[in-house]
């Protein structure tokens, strides 16, 4: 009996181990390549450890990416905050203040998720320029807020659907109005929802490339554009883009490491019951 359990446990952990290796392989490749000398980087030896550690890749890449990093932080934090707050208010209305046609409006919102970004590049550019928002971060922030609304509204709507209507009713009988119900009752309950949507939005916005490159002037370029510049050109020393990639991924990675537990709790709270 005991040995049977052991075999089961061993195979269980072996499966997990194989999965972990599969998931970590690309990370290993990136780190190893980043630490090599440019001349040593060839395909047949791509798994080998570097002969000498070349830490210079990181400082060099960091020097080139620093302004982009700052831009990315401003962009991502503002756009994430904007789209989650608006999304939360929308979700509140869609779930607790349904009016005639609100379901249809909600459905129409959802379709906004399905627009491929490159499709609306030209009208978006023209609109932002007409609003005098081309070139700087505010225009890009606005764009990300708008196209983040469908998904944040969806998540918050589902999240609030599980707050019993009776709770809202009783608060209103106590004389609370639209906003005070939101501030006193709904908002405090929705912290896990904020974690989920912020994490999602943060990841999406941090990693978006096409709009970033089209809608901002050179001095306002976010990190993805800087990264593409590292990897562009006709002859590339791959250690630099790899080092840059690792640095570009670090902020989001840290959030996942520290907030991963809350992310799952938030998902749990948000989407189990429709």
């Amino acid at each position: 009996m005991k040995s049977k359990v052991n075999i089961k446990t061993v195979s269980y952990y072996a499966t997990l181990g194989i999965l972990v290796i599969f998931f970590l392989m690309p990370a290993y490749m990136a780190v190893v390549t980043a630490l090599k000398q440019p001349g040593d980087i060839t395909l047949p030896t791509s798994w080998d450890l570097p002969a000498t550690l070349n830490w210079a890749s990181f400082s060099e890449a960091f020097a080139m990416l620093r302004p982009n990093l700052v831009n990315s932080f401003i962009l991502t934090i503002c756009a994430t905050a904007g789209s989650t707050i608006l999304g939360s208010l929308n979700g509140y209305v869609f779930s607790k203040w349904k009016f005639k046609g609100s379901e249809i409006i909600f459905t129409l919102f959802l379709f906004g998720m399905f627009i491929p970004y490159q499709v609306i590049l030209i009208p978006l550019f023209q609109t932002l320029r007409a609003m005098n928002l081309y070139g700087g971060l505010p225009g890009l922030i606005l764009a990300h807020i708008v196209y983040g609304l469908p998904i944040t509204s969806l998540i918050f709507r589902n999240f609030y659907a599980q707050i019993p209507d009776s709770l809202i009713e009783s608060a209103r009988l106590d004389g609370a109005g639209f906003f005070s119900v939101y501030l006193k009752l709904v908002f405090p309950l929705s912290i896990p929802g904020f974690v989920v949507t912020s994490l999602w939005q943060f990841t999406q916005i941090w990693n978006e490339f096409l709009w970033a490159i089209t809608l901002t002037r050179h001095s306002e370029n976010p990190i993805t554009v800087g990264l593409a510049n590292l990897a562009g050109g006709q002859a590339v020393s791959w250690n630099l883009p790899m080092a840059g990639s690792i640095m570009a991924a670090l902020p989001v990675l840290c959030i996942y490491i520290f907030l991963g537990r809350y992310f799952i709790r938030g998902l749990l709270a948000g989407s189990v019951k429709e």
Partner: peptide
């Protein structure tokens, strides 16, 4: 202002 757009065999720059 050196506005460089790279990547994608020059297609991104064209876009």
């Amino acid at each position: 202002i050196n506005a460089t757009v790279t990547g994608g065999s020059g297609v991104n720059a064209k876009a």
